[in-house]
Design a protein around this nucleic acid. Structure first.
Lengths: 356, 356
DNA sequence: CTGAAAGCGCTTACAG
DNA sequence: CTGAAAGCGCTTACAG
């Protein structure tokens, strides 16, 4: 492999100058820079990231931790994050926890991330006290996406889950529903996180604001997945008189609900209206009414917040190089969360209840 | 930060011994190993990956390149790959090409991967001659998933796309359909890759085997996405008398087709049967008949094939594997492709055509 | 603006 | 089984 010495020799300069020229540092004359770039090009030189990182003290790598990359929200977030990191010359180290406790501990608790990445993006990852402590100890910059995984000093990007659930429930109330069920996550579901608590609160607030009492028999806990939605709805139907509407805590659960209702011979929305949260790729295909949340934007914004203080240039001066830092980070306390707007999307799965 | 010297001092041994003990090399006495591990534990020592990589010449990192992580197939593959890499102590560097030509070139053409990863998993990534040349020059082990992106010397894991399409089409023929349309990818669609060519071929073969002539007016090219399916179907309907069945080259296109048919006032399957390939997470919710392909298994197997020669873990025989012809080498050292089985899944979107 | 030299923190022959 | 020493390929003060 061609090393930095080879480039230096061909360009007739020292390795220090090659290093500076390739990274676009300002202290290199235009003529020298040209010679160096030409030599590097000619030799097809690529820096050794390991050597660069060891010498420079920075890894040019960001860890992105998600519960499950296959779920719509997480995949969409990662895609947006990846694009910005890629364009900024940063490597993306993917950690898909997948509900595996061993993986969780290894990623969150051990110091393994410490010398491996410059920063962390934590997406909707439930954090215990020991996790927060370990992450804080790493002393790395980080950003969280979704509420419930706050780390002291880390910015958080999210939506207002309570308000989203309130809007969803109000939509059903406005249509004339009064028997509105809620299916949501349970405390053991890593995907449900604490999000389900906020969404339940919004549901209950909307009911109370309409003068209705939340009925525990219409509130079922399950998993934040298609299957979870199916099971929760089956349970709901087994409890007796069906509701006239179901507010599912996320679109995937709503899709499961639609399946369960169909299997039970009930039509959507004629017999039961169904409503979700997300605006999943397939919500349109299923005609699902929902509260749209900007997933890609949350990812993009989180990445931007992270890279900005790292002083990253929009494009790297030379392929494979760790970007140079610019200014110093500021701020002591945890910044206020950045809250992105949601939007009611009415499709065909919600309608007024049938007249008796 | 605590370094290897700190551990060595506390354990009363040399750094060389710490290095050996921590990596579990056999040439360390049990007593010494215990002392070293205790010291490392006490100091909460974590190796510096950069230093270890520079000195050791290996990165412990695998690049995973996908067209779009948000599509069902790619997300599922990555999830499976990630789990095995994670359990093997490997880092996963994610590259989501996202149809960006600049990213494609940077990842595939520059030597940036060279000293960055030990191996590459390329998922359904269209490769031009220059890409193949660049990848070959990297001289790294790699595995491709899906046909069409063959790299000399790299194993390939995939399904038999021609056979899958044949089975799908035959299912429709068996139901009594004769006006069977096909919607598929176009040459400019990075997601369609060359997969669409194989699937079209299977479609045409099945028709011919049934004594039917493929009708070009029933064959529409579009994108391998939900929207692509919608557009292709709209185009199909605009051409005149609708087909009685549509075979979509993937489930996402089939879902788009269902949407377009519904918008046109046609019922599935009463007026038009719809069939896909994949067995997407949501195929069941939509009642979509399809050819199921094992996405997670393809990812798992690819990772296993890759890690095996790296000495990471023993290869266990994969359950349900179609045994590849041993030693049927292709001349340039490329092993024969590993072909995983597909399976016809009949749901509610396919039925006999209406009697006239 | 440029270079000589030290050093980043490990691993690996080599020797014992 | 263990240690002393060289070396992996860069970046960074420091000096000029």
């Amino acid at each position: 492999m061609t090393r930095i010495d080879d480039v230096a020799r061909l360009a007739g300069v020292s390795t220090a100058t090659v290093s500076r020229a390739l990274r676009g540092l300002p202290t290199v004359s235009a003529a020298t820079r040209r010679r160096v770039l030409a030599a590097a090009e000619q030799l097809q030189y690529a820096v050794s990231p390991s050597a660069s990182r060891l010498a420079g003290g920075r890894t040019g790598t960001v860890a992105v931790v998600v519960p499950r990359i296959t779920r719509w929200f997480f995949g969409t977030v990662v895609e947006a994050v990846e694009e910005l990191l890629q364009d900024s010359g940063y490597d993306l180290l993917l950690y898909n926890l997948g509900g595996r406790e061993r993986t969780r501990r290894r990623v969150l608790r051990t110091a393994s991330l410490h010398k491996r990445v410059d920063a962390i993006i934590l997406v909707a990852t439930p954090l215990r006290a020991a996790d927060v402590q370990a992450l804080t100890k790493l002393d790395l910059p980080g950003v969280t996406i979704s509420s419930g995984s706050e780390v002291p000093g880390w910015p958080c990007v999210r939506i207002d889950d309570v308000a989203a659930a309130r809007t969803a429930t109000r939509h059903l109330l406005d249509l004339g529903h009064t028997r509105i069920a809620h299916i949501s996550g349970d405390p053991d579901d890593e995907l449900a996180f604490t999000t389900h608590l906020d969404r339940r609160r919004g549901y209950q607030e909307a009911l109370r604001a309409a003068g209705l009492r939340p009925d525990p028999s219409l509130d079922v806990e399950s998993q934040f997945t298609i299957d979870g939605g199916t099971r929760a709805t089956a349970e709901l139907l087994a409890r007796g008189e069906p509701p006239t509407a179901i507010f599912a805590a996320c679109d995937e659960m709503a899709m499961g609900a639609i399946t369960a209702l169909r299997d039970a011979g009930l039509r959507v929305p004629d017999d039961v209206s169904v409503m979700g949260v997300d605006d999943h790729d397939l919500a349109g295909v299923l005609g699902l009414s929902t509260i749209a949340q900007p997933a890609a934007e949350q990812g993009l914004l989180a990445a931007r917040i992270l890279l900005d203080p790292l002083g990253v240039r929009a494009t790297e001066p030379y392929p494979g190089l760790v970007p140079a830092p610019r200014g110093a980070d500021t701020g002591d306390g945890t910044p206020p969360p950045v809250i992105l707007p949601t939007r009611l999307v009415v499709r065909e799965s919600t309608a007024p209840p049938r007249a008796h």
